[in-house]
Amino acid sequence: MGNRQEILLTGAGGQGLILASIVLAEAAVNDNKNVVQTQSYGPEARGGASMAGVIIDVDTIEYPKVANPTVLLCMNQASFNKFLPKVKPGCVVIVDSTFVTGPFQEEYKIQTYPITQTAKDELGREVVANMMALGVVNAATELVDRDIFRESIHKMAPKGSGELNQKAFDVGYRLYEHGSGQNFGFSAQTTE
């Protein structure tokens, strides 16, 4: 069971997190892993809190819901407040500092990156923040082979937007390599 990775992607409805979870799951399948993807449907998917889970394992996956997240992505403050208390301190927590201002308690492994802001400033398209977030998550966790992930993104993107989405994914890697808490001078982040 040591190989089991449970990834929870959370944020607001409309940030593309369910799509991101499907892309992540597709990439994992292409990387020959077992995978199950679930999401919360319902009124909250239209503006409120949105949540999608992906489980990746070399073993067969029985219980399909995320119970003990090993990776948590929070794309807005509400989801950060809601889901952080539900994870164990060992969980990798990745936060979009464009929208999440803390508090970043020390007992958690929290990494902050200005994901949406960077998508807007560098690529001019806020909508690719989800693929950028996947770039950060995959850089931090190495869930899926990077090249396979990039190919999967290209395959699943709407016609003509494959390269933009791949670029967003690569910028996510760069954000990670720059390190957590780098503000690029425009983050709404208050602590650190």
Partner: peptide, 9 residues
């Protein structure tokens, strides 16, 4: 709903 909506390999 679980089986209907979940995706897996």
């Amino acid at each position: 709903e679980v089986i209907g909506h979940m995706r897996e390999k």
